[in-house]
Amino acid sequence: MSAEAETIDDTSMCASCGNAAKDDVKLKNCTACHLVKYCGVKCQREHRPQHKRECRKRAAELHDEILFKQPESSHLGDCPICCLPLSLVPKTCIMMACCSKMICNGCDYASVIRKIDDKCPFCRHPTPENEEETDKDLMKRVEANDPVAVRNMGFKRYNDEGDNESAIEYLTKAAELGDLVAHFELANFYRDGECVGKDMKKVIYHSEQAAIGGHPMARYNLGCVEEENGRFERAVKHWIIAANLGDDKSLNALKKGYAVGRIQKEDFAAALRAHQAALDAAKSPQREAAEAARLNNH
Rank of each mutant, 00 (worst) to 15 (best):
residue 76 L to R: 10
residue 138 L to R: 12
residue 28 K to Y: 11
residue 224 C to W: 05
residue 285 P to M: 11
residue 146 D to K: 02
residue 98 C to E: 01
residue 206 H to Q: 05
residue 149 A to L: 06
residue 222 L to A: 01
residue 90 P to F: 06
residue 221 N to R: 11
residue 237 K to G: 03
residue 188 N to D: 09
residue 126 P to C: 07
residue 5 A to K: 14
residue 60 A to P: 02
residue 280 D to V: 13
residue 91 K to P: 01
residue 224 C to H: 07
residue 23 D to M: 11
residue 230 G to H: 05
residue 235 A to Y: 01
residue 218 A to H: 06
residue 106 G to P: 06
residue 11 T to F: 14
residue 131 E to I: 12
residue 182 A to F: 04
residue 199 D to Y: 03
residue 143 E to V: 07
residue 86 L to G: 00
residue 218 A to S: 15
residue 9 D to Y: 03
residue 130 N to K: 06
residue 201 K to W: 03
residue 138 L to D: 00
residue 29 N to I: 03
residue 86 L to C: 05
residue 206 H to L: 05
residue 100 S to E: 02
residue 262 R to C: 08
residue 263 I to M: 13
residue 46 E to G: 06
residue 116 I to T: 14
residue 63 H to Y: 15
residue 272 L to V: 08
residue 90 P to D: 06
residue 277 A to V: 08
residue 61 E to L: 15
residue 123 C to R: 05
residue 202 K to H: 02
residue 133 E to G: 03
residue 28 K to R: 14
residue 58 R to D: 06
residue 71 P to F: 10
residue 285 P to N: 04
residue 208 E to I: 05
residue 218 A to P: 06
residue 74 S to L: 06
residue 143 E to A: 12
residue 165 E to F: 09
residue 290 A to F: 00
residue 103 I to E: 00
residue 73 S to P: 03
residue 166 S to E: 14
residue 220 Y to M: 09
residue 68 F to R: 04
residue 83 C to W: 11
residue 38 Y to K: 02
residue 136 K to S: 11
residue 17 C to L: 05
residue 96 M to H: 03
residue 276 Q to F: 05
residue 103 I to P: 00
residue 38 Y to E: 01
residue 178 G to R: 02
residue 120 C to P: 02
residue 92 T to L: 09
residue 271 A to P: 02
residue 295 L to Q: 12
residue 196 V to C: 08
residue 227 E to Y: 07
residue 207 S to E: 09
residue 197 G to H: 10
residue 167 A to D: 08
residue 223 G to K: 00
residue 258 Y to L: 13
